[in-house]
Design a protein around this nucleic acid. Structure first.
Length: 420
DNA sequence: CGGTTTTGACCTGCGC
DNA sequence: GCGCAGGTCAAAACCG
């Protein structure tokens, strides 16, 4: 029996190791804005990295109008502190420097090619399947983390002893991020390429659960489960697990960042706080993600799971009308553009602009930078997240520090670098 | 023909 | 130890 299983493992590559080509992403699945929009500009976003040396990447167009929609929501640390303006400025300066650096390097892509963001030698990993210290993984350990994630996903193929020792080291072997969204489509389009490898009817739910594996890169450990909600068939529950080992297209990055931000906040909190605090902190993150109305955390499951509920009204659930930062704002029904391709409908969206909450000297800078260069938002997010990483390092000693981390919501989307 | 989906069998973990 | 349920494998069928 055991021998048979080992044979299965050895024979597996023939099926699971797939193409290095055929990465022609369906244009409909990429958030390119209005394709006929005259303001649409063309830009490269894929690297010529070794990973994709033999792949074909098409030039994708990104709507200028879509980019202008990017909004800086607010700056909230794990303890709900506002980020000091000086720190924000530092982030912008760093972001600008990185944008310039990236753009000067010919042949370099405009977006970070790695699932973790490198900043001046420091790597900040926002990972769904990460260990206790994973949010500040060292560069030379980034691959180890991925390897670990991968091996954990395929746990049965590893020796029980290794599994055991790893499990004993890690308070949570891995976390999952579950996204609830209203969709008529069989699967939400998150910009990644998936291969279905199984389907199962689980107990208590007549709707089958489908299992998908990311096929955008060989050996990518990311998996997801898709299932319809028993109570409401229009609600699609997508559960992500693992860490991409390849660059993501912008449309995928948005979702990946959002989910990784959730997991990252939870995991970082869980390392040094109680689960209640972790939950509190994690939920706090999503006060800056208007399209995510509810973030719940389940630690009763084998793996801690964060559920991002995009199906209900955020203001009714989590906004505190007495707070200046969370005062009621005009709402309107909208779709979430980053997930378009299939109509994923989010009931409400906070609508306000940069200047409403921040001192003008900051917001003007932000507006100009964001509007003029989409790369800036990416670099800015990376810079801010690097500060988060630094802050996390001090969390143990300084839980009430006013230099808390930050979450940057762009167009209602966390831009914390990382991946699902 | 190569990649994807289907689907029955199998493995593993967990509760009793 | 046994049964159950979730998760995965992999051969066959399907598809473009």
């Amino acid at each position: 029996m055991e021998n048979r299983h080992q044979m299965q493992q050895q024979q597996r590559p023939g099926l699971t190791l797939l193409r290095s080509t055929n990465l022609n992403l369906d244009p409909a699945t990429i958030n390119t804005g209005q394709r006929d929009d005259p303001s649409v500009k063309e830009l490269d976003f894929f690297p010529s990295s070794s990973l994709f040396k033999n792949t074909e990447y098409t030039r994708k167009r990104v709507s200028e109008a879509t980019r202008r929609e990017l909004q800086v929501e607010n700056y909230v640390g794990p303890n709900h502190q506002k980020l000091p303006p000086a720190t924000i400025f530092h982030c912008f300066a760093e972001a600008e420097a990185n944008v310039e650096k990236n753009e000067m390097m010919s042949g370099q892509h405009l977006l970070d090619p790695q699932p973790c963001t490198k900043l001046d030698g420091k790597v900040v990993v926002a990972s769904v399947s990460d260990d206790k210290s994973g949010l500040e993984a060292r560069p030379d350990h980034a691959e180890d983390a991925l390897e670990q994630s991968s091996s954990q996903s395929l746990g049965s193929s590893k020796s029980p002893k290794i599994e055991e020792s790893k499990a004993s080291e890690l308070p949570f072997r891995r976390a999952r991020v579950s996204v609830r969204a209203i969709s008529e489509a069989p699967m939400i389009c998150d910009g990644c390429q998936w291969r279905k490898y199984g389907q199962k009817i689980s107990k208590g739910n007549p709707c089958p659960r489908a299992y998908y594996r990311c096929t955008m890169a060989v050996g990518c450990p990311v998996r997801k489960q898709v299932q319809r909600c028993t109570e409401d068939k229009t609600v699609l529950i997508t559960t992500y697990e693992g860490n991409h080992n390849h660059p993501l297209p912008p449309s995928a990055t948005v979702m990946a960042n959002s989910t990784s931000a959730a997991a990252a906040m939870f995991l970082s909190s869980s390392g040094s706080t109680t689960s209640n605090e972790a939950l509190s902190n994690t939920v706090g993150v999503f006060s800056s993600m208007p399209y995510i109305s509810m973030a719940t955390l389940s630690t009763s499951a084998p793996f801690p799971t964060i559920t991002l509920d995009m199906t209900t009204n955020p203001m009714q659930l989590h906004r505190d009308p007495s707070s200046a930062l969370t005062s009621p704002l005009p709402l309107h029904a909208t779709t979430f553009p980053q997930l378009l391709g299939h109509p994923v409908i989010f009931p409400h969206k906070v609508e306000h602009t940069l200047g409403q909450r921040q001192p003008s000297f900051i917001t003007d800078t932000m507006s100009a930078a964001i509007a003029s260069n989409p790369n800036f938002t990416v670099a800015l997010a990376a810079a801010i997240s690097s500060i988060i990483g630094a802050t996390r390092g001090n969390d143990g000693n300084n839980n009430n520090s006013s230099n808390g981390g930050s979450v940057l919501a762009l167009n209602g989307t966390s831009m914390l670098p990382g991946s699902t």
